[in-house]
């Protein structure tokens, strides 16, 4: 029961930072939707995942806000892949969100007495 609650807590936390996580995954190179999903799933060690539908909503939001740009790949077989590229605005927002996350994490660690 406690483990299930912990999982739900971790999944909620992950979902709450979907946009920043996607920006983080795009920091190194452009990726298409399923690649981003796999990168997050692999990084979470398979224990937690963000549903792809949630990610598509995040891509739309990030694109609308100009934090990522999308372009179609030139695949000739299978579906054409829509790649996402992080913009300068996206990098700035990512850096800001990471800073805010670190500050919040420190406060929570202090409040919960879990600081090393």
């Amino acid at each position: 029961m406690t483990e299930e609650l912990g999982d739900a807590f971790a999944s909620d936390l992950l979902r709450g930072h979907t946009d920043t996580i996607v920006l983080g995954v795009l920091q190194r190179r452009d990726r298409y939707g399923f690649e981003i999903y796999k990168a997050i799933r692999d990084a979470a060690g398979g224990d937690h995942e963000i549903k792809e539908a949630t990610l598509y909503a995040a891509y739309r939001r990030l694109e609308k806000d100009g934090l990522v740009e999308a372009y179609w790949g030139d695949e000739t077989q299978g579906g054409r892949r829509k790649y996402y590229r992080i913009t300068d605005a996206g990098r700035a927002v990512f850096r800001r969100n990471v800073g805010a996350w670190r500050a919040t994490r420190d406060i929570i660690d202090t409040l919960l007495g879990s600081r090393d």
């Binding site: 298409y32 939707g33 399923f34 999903y37 792809e52 598509y56 179609w72 695949e75 299978g78 579906g79 054409r80 892949r81 829509k82």
Partner: peptide
């Protein structure tokens, strides 16, 4: 189209 690529 985007979903199709992901599903494939």
């Amino acid at each position: 189209e985007e979903l199709r690529a992901s599903l494939v």
